[in-house]
Structures are given as C-alpha cells and as structure tokens.
C-alpha cells in the first residue's frame, strides 16, 4: 500500500486561549498536488508551521514521509522544500550567496547547475543584493531555494503573492513538471482559481477547521457560479425551485443574486419566460464557497 506523504491526525493548536486549528485531519498521497484553501487567518499557515516543526501542536499528530514532524524533523526537512508566504532572506547577501548558503545545508558542495537553471528560468540577477530586490524577485529567490535540493515534498504557503501573471504561469509549469517527475506538492492559497488550475484534491479550511476535502474534478462538476439577475417586472417564483440554487439574495425589487451549482440550461429555460434586463455569471468568492459547503 502506498505510504501517504502527509498524514495529519486530529491536529490542534491553541495560541493561549485563541484557536489556531482544531481537529484537523487530512492525508496527502505521494505524487499529488494537494490544495489547501481558506481565507486569511483560517489556519493554513498554522498547519504548515506544525508540519515544519516551527511551532508545536497542542494536540494530535502529524507525519511527513512516514516520519513524525517533531521527532524526525531534521530528516523530513532534508526531503522537503518550503516557500513561506513572506519571502524573507538575509538582506545583506547577494542572491548567489544566499542560494549557495541555502544549498550547502543539503550538499557538501555547491549545487550550481540547478541554481543556474532556475535563475535563468526566473530571469533573476544573482549578483544583486536581496535587500535591493522587489517583492516579486524575492519570491523567485524563495522558490529557487525551495527546489535546489530536489525535494520529495514541496510545501507552498501563498506562493504566488508578488509574482506577475506571466511569472505565475511559468511557476505553475515548473510545478507541473516537478510533479510529473515525482514531487508531491502541498499548495496553500486563498485564491480558488489558482488552486483549481493546479491541484487534484483540495481541503477547505475555515476558522481552524477542515470543512471539506474534495476532489477538484467534483468541485469543477459542481460549477459553482454566482449569478446576478436584473428582471423587468416581477421576479418569477419558479426560480427558487430550480435545482442547484442557494443563498438567494434580493438586492431590490427586480434584482437578485444567488449561488448556482446546477445545470445552467435549466436556469436559462426557466428564465426564458421572463424579460431579462441584465445577467452576469461570476466566480464566487471564497466566503461564498464556504457558505455553499456550510449548507
């Protein structure tokens, strides 16, 4: 049987009396790109920091690559790469010095070839000081340092903040390539679209608790959309009976919005009897997705 790369059991962390996470359970299999999504302060970073032994759990346990995150932290970190949400590095070092320093923790020599490949890919000037880099370029440095040692597991905490869309695309291509070569990826984000783009399964976390662990294909099948309608005259009562409609909000006498996860053709058929002034379909916000899962 395949060994899970991450196994979290009943993990709980309290900061004094404040809840960080509570009874978090999840398993990430080898070779997966696993999304971990939730709003800011939901407990994503807390979970990741426990996996990396930066903080200690109040209760529960976690294993990475079959090893306990507290007792065997050093061995885990040898096989794990990590991109923190804030890409901070030693400001007085140049990019080259920092990457060489980082790689010497894994290799006795300098893993120059891999560093060169990645700095070329990300178009990074290695002679510049970290302090002089933009936020986006610092993020690139953080991405490179996390991959230099070809880790088995890559843990990403909001990795795209600061990256421009073109660089995000290149980064996602790199992640797909590394995943194809066997790397397991744990991708934490508050942006649903990028998680949907990359991940196979996703765990949704809110207020420190896992609400749902869902296959991304199932999530897509649900095609959750936010629909705005502006109707001339009265809003037909049949709308509320269409399968897949939830959280209807009346904005005014002839305007309404709702979340829709049903067949869009059913909706259009029902609406064909009314005179529409306007209709828009949008990606729902995270909060709205959470509302959907809370129902």
């Amino acid at each position: 049987m395949q060994q899970p790369v991450i196994r979290i059991k009943d993990l709980t962390k309290y900061y004094g009396k404040a809840k960080g996470i509570e009874h978090v359970n999840l398993t990430v299999q080898e070779g997966e790109i696993f999304g971990f999504i939730g709003p800011n302060g939901a407990g994503k970073s807390t979970t990741i920091r426990i996996l990396l032994n930066l903080i200690f759990p109040t209760n529960g346990s976690a294993e990475v690559l079959g090893m306990d995150v507290i007792r065997e932290s050093k061995r885990i970190k040898k096989l794990t790469g990590y991109i923190p949400s804030d890409a901070n590095a030693y400001m007085k070092m140049t990019v080259a010095e920092f990457l060489a320093y980082s790689s010497r923790f894994y290799f006795s020599g300098n893993s120059g070839r891999k560093i060169r490949e990645l700095t070329v890919l990300f178009d990074l000037d290695t002679k510049r000081k970290i302090a002089d880099l933009s936020r986006g370029n610092r993020k690139k440095v953080a991405i490179i340092q996390s991959m230099v040692h070809n880790p088995k597991l890559l843990i990403l905490d909001e990795p795209t903040t600061g990256l421009d869309p073109l660089m995000q695309q290149q980064f996602f291509e790199l992640l797909r390539k590394e995943n194809h070569n066997g790397m397991t990826i744990f991708f934490s984000s508050h942006v649903l679209s990028e998680v949907q783009l990359l991940c196979e399964r996703v765990a949704i976390i809110k207020e420190g608790e896992i609400i749902k662990i869902e296959n991304i294909d199932n999530l897509r099948k649900k095609q959750l959309k936010k629909v705005f309608l502006e109707i001339e005259g009265e809003i037909p009562r049949e709308i509320a009976t269409i399968a897949g409609i939830e959280h209807i909000m009346m904005n005014s006498g002839n305007m309404l919005s709702f979340l829709f996860s049903g067949d869009i053709n059913d909706l259009i058929r029902t609406l064909s009897a009314t005179k529409l002034m306007n209709m828009t379909l949008e990606e729902p916000s995270l909060e709205e997705i959470f509302m959907h899962y809370y129902k």
């Binding site: 930066l54 050093k74 970190k77 040898k78 990590y82």
Partner: peptide, 17 residues
C-alpha cells in the same frame, strides 16, 4: 526579528544544532 527564522529552521537542522 529579521524574519529569517522560517528559512533557517526549515533547513535540515535540529533546534539543538
């Protein structure tokens, strides 16, 4: 306080080291 602890402590090092 320089915010490099995440980097350092995610290297293969024990706290004791």
């Amino acid at each position: 306080y320089n915010k490099t602890a995440d980097f350092l402590l995610s290297r293969p090092l024990t706290r004791s080291e």
